[in-house]
Nucleic acid binder design. Structure first.
Length: 554
RNA sequence: GGGCCUGUAGCGCAGCAUGGACAGCGCAUACAACUAAAAAAGUUGGCUUAACUGCCUUCUAAGCAGAGGGUCCCAGGUUCAAAUCCUGGCAGGCCCGCCA
């Protein structure tokens, strides 16, 4: 049932003017209790009358069984029939359950995330990347699309050689005695501490790697396998599943052929040193080198071939790269060059940039070891959740304690990150993120558990029969109705923060309701149970879209 | 020098796409002594895991209600109406590599 449409039809009947009612009909601010409002300013010009007068005249003409109308200043305020609306919404949710809010867009969407380096463990920035990737994947599945998760592993280059060189010098052929990606990462830190950046040895090593020197390749394979093993453990814990992984080492040479082909067709040019470049000056992107004067490929070159390969692999309708905002320029160049080469699919390629996460002391630098790595952050948060749980519940099994603290800890991190607009930088304040009060993941889980508890303890069945309905009850139900729209908006804007916000507002309304009316033992118990149940379905859907798990008991 | 992004209460954020009625939310918020003309701010102290005020015999108080706190960065412009759109500034971040 589309309530807005009912109102618009009624308006159209009375106002015989060419006006876009969909555009003007609005949801009034909180202090106005109406469900919808129509400002009469736009009519003032047409009728040459004061909008207050117009509203007064119209109010008596518009009638419907679904709503009542009031003229308040220059506004026509519409009050939906609460019982009717509540019944319609609850009916639909209890029927569709966790499918409420689903859509059928039927597109194929490929998402690239998080793109690790094989010289160090995942850090806070990757966490942001991962949680955005997870959440968007869930959102696009909810809107009825086929989602394919791909990953790009940065497994070659100078930075990889650094950890290799440090291992060669100081590693004594040791095997990992800790989580293997951390083991590798320690050598990366060791390199910048003990070895000179200008060290000729590092270039020598890269040359050896490129010329397939047996020892170098073996060391590379060994250390990469350690790093990847450790990174996969983190993925598993965080809930990341990858459908196809691309390794840069497999593509950095293939890009070269693409560029040379483009050069032959005179799409690209050569400078005096024989380096091939794309002239992007008219796009305000300057001249971009695609092949070095010695003929080797650069970063963007390998991405060109990966981009083409992806399209050949999946023929997707949309490709989303989740990569930090410092690479905005890189992706502009990448897409322009692909366009120059005549690949039409680039029009469906999209770079979702996300902002930096800072520590209170400043930017994270893995070279200096001043990072919050993903694993220790997860450990810290779950440990904290555990302490909170132990404070509250004395007789809880160890297994249950572990399970709950893991879910709560991860929810705290995920929500903390997702609640920020992806584009904005923010400071990760460990002290604040551990707080379990206010606008946090644990607050949402707690609210969910409260709802579950009511349903568990009640002996009655939810039935939608409405005698009376209070404001608190009505507001919860109306908010449930907004879920569909919010899912659509966050999909359209690539922004899970909208859903995070929605979930919090919904939970807040529910807690107000919870406080106001006691469900169990109420005369209206069955009706109130139907609100609780519908709330539970929707909040669970919302939290799952944010990649958070829920708990029946907190 | 050029490009992109950000600027909303003490702190952290939402709203900006699609301009509308009083700009929402979370965190924070005690007292005494001292420094101080005052304000702001700071220092010290005790209690102790606790700090604005109220609410646990009631479905989990990880909660709810209430209070104070705002030049929506600045200046112009468009409009009946601007936090929202446009122009120009100011401040901060990122990028503009034959690194990845």
């Amino acid at each position: 049932m589309d309530f807005k449409k009912e109102i618009i039809n009624a308006l159209k009947k009375e106002i015989n003017q060419d006006i876009n009612f969909e555009e003007y009909l609005e949801v009034p601010p909180d202090h106005v209790s109406a469900d919808y409002a129509f400002p009469c300013f736009s009519l003032a010009g047409i009728y040459k009358k004061n909008p207050v007068e117009i509203s007064k005249e119209l109010v008596n003409k518009i009638k419907s069984e679904y709503f009542s109308v009031k003229a308040e200043g220059p506004y026509l305020n519409f009050f939906l029939n609460k019982k009717f609306v509540a019944e319609e919404i609850l009916k639909q949710i209890l029927k569709e359950k966790e499918n409420y809010g689903n859509k059928k867009e039927n597109k194929k969407i490929v998402i690239e995330s998080p793109g690790p380096n094989t010289n160090k463990p995942l850090h806070l920035g990757h966490l942001r990347n991962m949680v955005l990737g997870l959440s968007l994947s869930n959102i696009y599945k909810k809107t009825g699309n086929k989602v394919i998760n791909v990953d790009i592993v940065n497994d070659r280059g100078v930075h990889i050689c650094k950890s290799m060189l440090a291992y060669k010098k100081f590693g004594k052929n040791k095997k990992p005695d800790k989580k293997p990606d951390h083991f590798v990462g320690d050598f990366y830190v060791l390199y910048s501490k003990k070895l000179n950046e200008k060290d000729e040895e590092i270039n020598e090593m890269l040359r050896k790697w490129e010329s397939n020197d047996k020892d170098t390749i073996n060391l590379w394979k060994k250390m990469n396998s350690w790093a990847i093993k450790g990174i996969n453990e983190t993925y598993k814990r965080f809930g990341i599943k990858i459908n196809k992984t691309y390794y840069e080492s497999n593509y950095y040479k293939k890009g070269k052929e693409l560029v040379l082909k483009g050069y032959k067709k005179e799409i690209f040019k050569k400078n005096k040193d024989n380096a091939v470049y794309a002239d992007l000056k008219d796009k305000n992107l300057g001249n971009k080198i695609l092949l070095r004067s010695d003929g080797t490929s650069v970063y963007v070159t390998q991405d060109l071939s990966v981009a083409v390969q992806r399209y050949n692999d999946f023929k997707m309708d949309k490709m989303i790269y989740i990569v930090a905002n410092e690479q905005i320029y890189h992706f502009k160049v990448l897409f322009e060059v692909l366009k120059m080469l005549g690949y039409k699919f680039v029009s469906n390629y999209y770079h979702l940039p996300y902002g930096m996460i800072y520590l209170p002391e400043g930017k994270m630098k893995s070279r200096e070891g001043t990072v919050v790595d993903a694993d220790s952050l997860m450990d810290d948060m779950t440990e904290l959740a555990k302490k909170e749980l132990e404070k509250r519940y004395k007789n809880i099994s160890k297994k249950e304690l572990e399970k709950r603290s893991e879910i709560i800890g991860l929810a705290a991190i995920k929500y903390f990150i997702l609640n920020h607009d992806p584009l904005k930088d923010f400071v990760y304040n460990p002290k604040e993120s551990i707080s379990f009060e206010g606008n946090t993941g644990p607050y949402l889980l707690y609210t969910y558990a409260r709802a579950s508890s009511i349903l568990r303890k009640s002996r009655k069945k939810p039935v939608i029969k409405i005698k009376d309905i209070s404001d608190e009850e009505y507001l919860v139900i109306k908010k449930l109705y907004d879920f569909k729209e919010t899912v659509g908006n966050s999909a359209e804007k690539y922004d899970p923060a909208l859903l995070a916000n929605y979930a919090f507002e919904l939970a807040k309304l529910f807690n107000e309701f919870y406080h106001e009316s006691k469900v169990i033992g109420s005369e209206r118990e069955q009706f109130l149970l139907s609100i609780v149940l519908a709330f539970k379905y929707v909040l669970k859907s919302a939290l799952n879209l944010l990649s958070m798990e829920t708990l029946e008991k907190m």
